[in-house]
Design a protein around this nucleic acid. Structure first.
Lengths: 112, 112
DNA sequence: TAAATAGATAACCGAAACGTTACCTATCAC
DNA sequence: GTGATAGGTAACGTTTCGGTTATCTATTTA
């Protein structure tokens, strides 16, 4: 019995390399679907599905201009990933002293 | 024809909420499997599988002590996620001026 | 109005993900 | 040695994912 997986989860949206590539492309400016699709060998319906996931996660926004749909980066929710990751920074910086202090700080918080 | 998906991909490993919870637990210190599993309602084999994925992504390390296997955080590869996310910081900080400068800098790079 | 273009949706398929139960191996305690 | 404990592996089922082709709608252009 698998979990619902929330479908609008940012971590999940960002897990796929094609979707990350789309976001990376959008960092350089908004673009219509055809231009986004041109960078990949997969079919356009496949791109449409990826865009739907990105929309669901509210990582992009769609606006219509004529028969084109312009996609735009909406980066606010990437902060969720950023703040999760930040909690690990002290660990990979392998400054033993600061790590020790950090862990001591945690156990202090537990006590209170 | 789905992509190979690399299986040791950090983004993929981190996409699952149970695996993130395991990593979060390990930030507070190493722990044997039984202790890691006690926080979840899913079966221990399921936990074992998640741990295998985390090992595959080299996000954790296993060391054996008697019949216990102690899992330890190995946070170096989270840097990959961090550096990807960092590229978006300028966007969510919605400082229009800095964003404009940023995009101009990009187009300068394109020309060269 | 008719044809072309931009793109989404539907139906389908194979593979992977995630869970389960059953079983196996290794170590510890009696 | 025997039983209990720690934890991995195997086999299996269901759901989700990521891709495809075919079809549909909306807009633009001739």
């Amino acid at each position: 019995m698998p979990r619902p997986s929330s479908h609008s989860d940012v971590f999940n949206a960002v897990a796929d390399p094609t979707r990350r590539a789309i976001l990376d492309r959008l960092r350089h400016g908004s673009a219509p679907v055809s231009e986004l699709a041109s960078g990949f060998r997969i079919s356009r319906p496949a791109i449409s599905k990826h865009l739907r996931v990105l929309r669901g996660a509210r990582l992009v926004r769609e606006s219509r201009h004529g028969r084109q749909r312009i996609y735009q980066l909406e980066p606010q929710r990437i902060k969720e990933v950023a703040s999760w990751v930040e909690q690990y920074r002290v660990f990979w910086q392998h400054n033993i002293t600061s790590l020790k202090h950090h862990l001591e700080h945690i156990s202090e918080e537990k006590k209170s």
